[in-house]
C-alpha cells in the first residue's frame, strides 16, 4: 500500500512496474475486484471524458447562467483557420479543457477529476498527448490509473477541495495528476512522473478559488485551460530531465499549508478575488437578484 509519492516510487522500483500498474494492483487488492473489471470501469470513465471534451468543439455549449459558453468552439475554429501563437497542440488542449468546463456548466455529463470544477484538465491532457504520441485507448486508460494514484496521494495528505484549499487544490491537483500521467504515457520513469506532478503544483501554488457569483463557471473555465497547458509543459520539463528540487510529497504538504492559510474569502465563497470586483458583483446581482 502507498500513502506517499515516495511509497509509489519504492513499490514501482521493487516490482519493476509503472505507477499505473501499482495503482491498478492496489485497487484490485483493496476492492477484491478483478483487474480486468476495474480496467473496464476506467474505460467507461475515459469514454465520458472523451464525449465531454468533444461536445464543445462541435457546437456552442452555453452555461446555465449564461456567464460562459461557446469558447471551446472559438478556439477550435481558431486552430482550423488561423496560425496560432502557441501552436496547435497547446490550442487543442485548451479547446478540450474549455469544452469539458462548458459541458459541466451547462448541466451535461462529466467525470469529476478530481472535482467537477477542475474536470477539464485531465481529459484535455490525456486526449491531446495520446494524439501527439500516437497512443491507443488502452494506453489512455492506463494513464488514468497513473493520474488516480497521484490524486489519491494528494487527497490523502492534503485536499482536492476548493473550499478547503483554493483553486490550487482543484486545478493544481488535476494538473499534477495529468502531468504525471503524460510522463508515463510518453515512457518516462516513475521518478520523472512525480517530478512533473511536483512542478505542476509549484507552478500554481497559492492560486485562489474566487468563482463569479459562486458558480462553477468563471474563472474556472480559464483555469481549466491554463491547467491543461500547465500539465503538458510540466510533463515536457520532466521528460527533458528537469527535476523538482523539492520532492513531490513536500510540495503536496506545502500546497495544503498554503491552502489552510488562504483567507475564507478566497476559498470558494465568492467574497474575494475576481468574484468581489465591481463587475463580478454586478453579475452576481443579475443572476440572483437582490
Amino acid at each position: 500500500m502507498y500513502t506517499k509519492g515516495s511509497d509509489l516510487i519504492k513499490i514501482a522500483k521493487e516490482k519493476n512496474k509503472r505507477i499505473c500498474d501499482v495503482v491498478l494492483d492496489y485497487e484490485s487488492e483493496r476492492t477484491g475486484k478483478s483487474k480486468k473489471e476495474i480496467f473496464e470501469q476506467m474505460r467507461s470513465v475515459l469514454k465520458v471524458m472523451i464525449d465531454s471534451a468533444n461536445r464543445g468543439l462541435e457546437k456552442e455549449v452555453i452555461s446555465i447562467s449564461g456567464l460562459i459558453g461557446g469558447n471551446a468552439k472559438k478556439v477550435e475554429d481558431y486552430v482550423k483557420n488561423k496560425k496560432t501563437i502557441s501552436g496547435n497542440i497547446i490550442n487543442k488542449a485548451m479547446a478540450r479543457a474549455l469544452s469539458v468546463s462548458e459541458v459541466n456548466a451547462s448541466m451535461g455529463k462529466i467525470v469529476a477529476a478530481p472535482t467537477a470544477g477542475s474536470a477539464g484538465i485531465l481529459p484535455a491532457v490525456i486526449i491531446t498527448a495520446a494524439e501527439v504520441l500516437n497512443k491507443n485507448e488502452d494506453e489512455m486508460v492506463e494513464a488514468l490509473f497513473t493520474a488516480s494514484g497521484i490524486g489519491q496521494i494528494i487527497a490523502k495528505n492534503a485536499t482536492v477541495s476548493g473550499a478547503e484549499g483554493g483553486c490550487q487544490a482543484e486545478c493544481g491537483s488535476a494538473a499534477a495528476m495529468a502531468a504525471a500521467a503524460v510522463v508515463e504515457m510518453a515512457g518516462g520513469t516513475p521518478e520523472q512522473a512525480l517530478h512533473a506532478a511536483a512542478i505542476a503544483i509549484q507552478n500554481i501554488l497559492g492560486l485562489v478559488c474566487d468563482p463569479v457569483a459562486g458558480l462553477v463557471e468563471a474563472p474556472c473555465y480559464l483555469r481549466n485551460s491554463s491547467g491543461a497547458v500547465n500539465a503538458l509543459t510540466s510533463a515536457d520539463l520532466a521528460l527533458a530531465g528537469i527535476k523538482s528540487i523539492i520532492p513531490f510529497d513536500e510540495v503536496v504538504d506545502a500546497m495544503y499549508k498554503v491552502g489552510k492559510s488562504l483567507p475564507f474569502e478566497l476559498r470558494e465563497t465568492a467574497l474575494g478575488g475576481i468574484a468581489a470586483t465591481p463587475t463580478g458583483q454586478k453579475f452576481m446581482k443579475e443572476i440572483f437578484g437582490e
Binding site: 459541458v103 456548466a105 467525470v111 467537477a116 488514468l144
Partner: peptide, 9 residues
C-alpha cells in the same frame, strides 16, 4: 478520485 460520473456543475 476519477468520479463520480455526474451531471454538472
Amino acid at each position: 478520485i476519477l468520479g463520480p460520473v455526474m451531471i454538472g456543475p
